[in-house]
Amino acid sequence: MANRELSPSSAKLRLLKSAVLLLPLMSCAAIAADKPSQEYKPFRLSVAQISTQSAEVANGNTELQRDSLLLSAGMNVPLNQQWSLGFRVGYDRLDYDWRNITLTGANNVAPLFGTDGQNWDHINRYRAGVSLNYRMDKHWAFFLAPQIQYAYADTASASEAQSYDIVASAMYAFDSGNMIGFGVAYLNDIDEVRTVPYLAMRWQIDEHWALANPFQAGFSGPAGLELSYRFNSDWNVGFGSSRRTERFLIEDDGTVVETNEWVSYLRGGWQATPALTVNLYAGYYFDGELEVTDQAALEMDSQGAAALDIEFKF
């Protein structure tokens, strides 16, 4: 069925999906600690544009086409040889272009538009966080990061859309340079609280091949794995599959929509200058659904997507 009740197993799976969204927080900090310091650049600015094809929702006439603009800025300040402090802020604009909306009949999408059926077209998402990193020795690094976020549609208020999380983790670096990490995420979301363990990794197979969690801001999302090949210091490609989850408030009465989907993608990366990195993605979303406040799950057809991710360090 296109519109179905959520099962207990689906709820448990969602907890795991939410936790893996936090993987880059630990992994990137530990990897950065291993990089040479002679060209250290503490500030980062990034912008990503994501676009999808139209997809049918609930196997009916309703179609959805999405465009997203993701902006983020951050800095990392070394306090001494062992401690560093990080700051980050971000804003995302998620545009939802609904077409042929069907609110009645067997394949209706009425749960997505709340009690009054009011249409929403875009989501604002603001986020800010700090991180504290401790490098104990050449092998062990520890990480603590609280973050606050507001994610709400144009039919809801920011004051009702607050959520926050705290991530505590440890990363172990082998003599070979390969890394594996473990952590716990406490997530206080808009309408639920959960605590979930997670795993992160980066494994350098040889001088060209590497297997790791995706870290870029493009549509791949952080959850999953990417196999990458580096041709030289300027060019690399990657192929991976990952899980995307986005959660936001659509009504001030606590009605929340969560999108869940898998994506397989091909990525091309270019290190244009020591300060400028460009990644271009082509991918395919599948097994997607939109969940509404733990009550209904509406299926979303597969669709193609493309993304451009640009990062500037200084």
Rank of each mutant, 00 (worst) to 15 (best):
F43C: 10
K12M: 09
A141H: 13
E311M: 14
N108C: 01
L211M: 06
I166F: 04
E246G: 10
L112D: 00
D252C: 03
M171A: 13
L276M: 10
R194V: 02
G268F: 13
L112H: 01
I190S: 11
N260F: 00
L79A: 03
A170W: 06
S157K: 05
L298T: 05
M75P: 00
A29C: 07
S241W: 11
A151W: 05
G269L: 03
V184L: 15
F215Y: 13
Y96V: 07
Y229G: 04
G283D: 07
L70N: 14
V20I: 12
A48M: 09
A305E: 10
S131A: 14
S9T: 08
F142A: 06
Y134E: 04
N188Q: 13
N76A: 13
I310G: 01
L23N: 15
G304N: 00
G240N: 07
A110P: 01
A30L: 08
L187H: 12
E192R: 14
A275F: 09
L290N: 07
P197V: 02
S220C: 09
Y198C: 02
A58L: 05
L112C: 07
I250T: 15
A272Y: 09
E299Q: 15
A307H: 07
Q149W: 10
S27L: 14
Y164M: 11
D234C: 07
P78N: 00
K138P: 06
D175T: 10
A223C: 07
S9N: 09
D137L: 04
P146L: 06
G177N: 06
I123H: 08
A106W: 06
I250R: 04
K41C: 06
S27A: 13
P24L: 08
F174E: 13
A170F: 08
K17R: 15
K17H: 14
K138I: 07
K138Y: 12
F43S: 11
W262C: 05
A110N: 11
E226A: 07
N76F: 05
A145V: 01
F314C: 09
Q118V: 13
G218W: 05
F219Q: 14
Q147P: 03
R194T: 12
L266C: 04
A297Y: 05
G238C: 00
F143T: 13
T195P: 01
R99C: 06
N188F: 03
E258C: 02
A307I: 00
A55H: 02
L69T: 13
F314H: 12
N260H: 11
N213R: 12
R14E: 03
G221V: 08
A156L: 02
N100A: 02
Q82I: 08
R93F: 15
F312Y: 15
R127S: 15
W262M: 11
Q149A: 14
G90T: 01
Y40N: 10
